[in-house]
Design a protein around this nucleic acid. Structure first.
Lengths: 103, 103
DNA sequence: AGTATACTGAACCCAATGGTTCAGTATACG
DNA sequence: CGTATACTGAACCATTGGGTTCAGTATACT
């Protein structure tokens, strides 16, 4: 009965953008700086920083400043909240199917 | 190796909006018409229709015209694609934690 | 000390999105 | 048949969102 909603909300919104999902995938294979994240997209540092900030606010990514660079990494178990939400919905969907019968 | 990406993309985008997530939750407890979906939000039918159309394109919802009404319902197993994506990421996140050590 | 690097903040731009209204069309009902 | 209901399509509007550039600041290198 925890107050997940706000974070879940931001998480889903964050996942709605393909660039940010790609960033998450990239971070899956290890931490990276803003510059390293921006480069493959040919995107400005400023642009990438905005994405990363949204991911931080959604609590999917953490960052720390190391020297003049900012190191970004996945938050462990970041997807628990949304996974839970999805699983609940998925159960509903299956129930719906069952009550409809085979037809 | 299936070509999930396009659908997954639309699914995440669709889930990014709180109204649409609420619609999905509502449909979890049974099918509903456009009017029934619009009412609790105090939203126009036209507005709700747009949301439902996006959910259809994301293959999360199906609809059928029944008389003058349009019946909307959850697609069974609609969330498989995105669940898979999330689970993969979640595994990554856990690996990241493990390699970091306890500290 | 001086220069290069990595990021940040502010200001701005454009396209997409979430919403509306209004004027239809099609079905349902008395 | 006539009227009410349920939705649809087109046109429009305001806000947000993803992106940029440019002018800093702070750290790193020689």
């Amino acid at each position: 009965m925890v107050q997940y909603t706000a974070t879940v909300d931001r998480a889903f919104a964050a996942l709605g953008d393909p660039t940010r999902r790609a960033v998450l995938e990239r971070l899956g294979s290890g931490s990276a700086t803003i510059g390293e994240l921006a480069e493959p997209f040919g995107m400005s540092l400023t642009g990438m920083r905005k994405h990363v900030r949204l991911l931080e606010e959604a609590e999917l990514v953490t960052t720390e400043k190391v020297g003049r660079a900012r190191r970004c990494m996945l938050v462990p178990y970041a997807f628990e909240g949304i996974s839970t939400w999805l699983q609940r919905l998925d159960r509903f969907a299956q129930v719906v199917e069952r009550t409809k019968g085979v037809r």
